[in-house]
Amino acid sequence: MRLDVTERGVFPIAPTPFHPDGGIDLDSIDRLTDFYGQVGATGLTVLGVMGEAPKLDHAEALDVAKRFIARAGRLPVIVGVSAPGFAAMGSLARSAMDAGAAGVMIAPPNTLRTDDQIAAYYRQASEAIGADVPFVIQDYPLNFTVVMTPAVIRRIVSENPACVMLKHEDWPGLEKISALRGFEADGSMRPIAILCGNGGLFLDFECERGADGAMTGYAFPDMLVDVVRLSTSGERDAAHDLFDAHLPLLRYEQQPGIGLAVRKYVMARRGLIASDAQRKPAGAMGGKAIAEVEYLLARLARHDPRAAVPAL
């Protein structure tokens, strides 16, 4: 069960659940993984930016990945293996693949500036993890400060047969999706899967531009699944109506610094994880922020009953 270019749908970015004391909450990993399968996710991604991967040591990261993989069953699991050096990246990638991962995701280090540097980095990364290991490019310039043009993405795809997917998180990025699909149409780039991030903030139009789905971590991944399904089936207005109902909460969750706190708070309120705890350093929600999120949930529940959470 290895990733290939035909992947479609939604691969939620899973948070790493923690107990309030900072220990890894394995039971919540199981509960969350079961939920993803129940709502129609086609896979999941672990140890991403919002999975607090940098706060885990190597052994913990591997334990988290193995727990998700074991629980996911037939759902393919992508494991984030980004690391400052190729030794650590290669070790985690090989261990994850041995445990049953479907592929890995690699983000560029923030030291890269030119197209040549970016292309060389991905060639070397593919060599480090093993040329047979399917990998995902994580294109997130707002976080990594590395700008990948459509042309350099085409170059990475052309030079690395194991590159099967782009996690597209540029902003604004709709034209980039169109450009990449244009390369495929004119034969200058082989087809790849394109799944989009940014909390799903532009998912409604990303699907219409040719994205194959989402790879992000909004607190209602079931909404993302529905939007992709409706868009794919041609039910444009229904897709936009559902998306629009969630947009105020989606936007609120996108705040830098506290976005993960909001996401984990809502997921805990939904019963998907036992606690909204984060590993330190962590952003925190104050009392007013909690009240605002509760207000947004109550408003959303008028349109989507999945937002109806028990009273505090």
Rank of each mutant, 00 (worst) to 15 (best):
L3P: 10
D4K: 03
G9L: 06
V10D: 10
V10E: 10
F11K: 04
P12T: 07
A14Y: 00
P15Y: 04
I24K: 08
Q38Y: 00
V39L: 06
T45F: 14
L47W: 02
L47T: 00
G48E: 04
M50R: 01
H58E: 13
H58D: 13
A61T: 05
A65M: 03
A65H: 07
A65N: 04
K66S: 07
P76T: 09
I78K: 04
V79K: 05
G80L: 03
A87M: 11
G90Y: 08
G90E: 12
A93E: 05
R94Y: 04
S95R: 15
A96F: 01
A96D: 03
M97G: 02
D98A: 15
A101R: 07
A101G: 06
G103D: 06
G103S: 02
I106C: 10
R113K: 14
T114E: 07
D115W: 02
D116N: 14
Y121F: 15
Y122I: 07
Y122C: 03
Q124E: 14
Q124I: 00
A128H: 08
I129H: 03
I129E: 04
P134Q: 08
Q138F: 11
D139I: 05
P141R: 08
L142I: 11
V146E: 07
A151Q: 14
A151N: 11
V152H: 01
R154G: 13
E159G: 01
C163P: 10
V164L: 08
V164E: 02
L166G: 08
P172Y: 12
L180A: 04
G182P: 05
S188E: 07
A193Y: 06
I194C: 08
C196Q: 06
G199H: 03
F202R: 15
L203I: 13
D204W: 09
C207T: 11
R209M: 14
R209L: 08
R209Q: 14
A211F: 07
G213Y: 05
M215A: 13
Y218Q: 10
A219S: 15
P221S: 11
V227D: 01
V227H: 04
V227M: 03
T232V: 03
S233N: 13
R236W: 08
D241Q: 13
F243R: 08
Y252F: 15
Y252S: 11
A261P: 10
V262E: 00
R263I: 11
Y265E: 03
R269D: 02
R269V: 01
L272Q: 07
S275L: 02
K280I: 10
A284N: 09
L296H: 05
A298S: 13
A301T: 12
A301N: 11
A301K: 11
A311D: 12
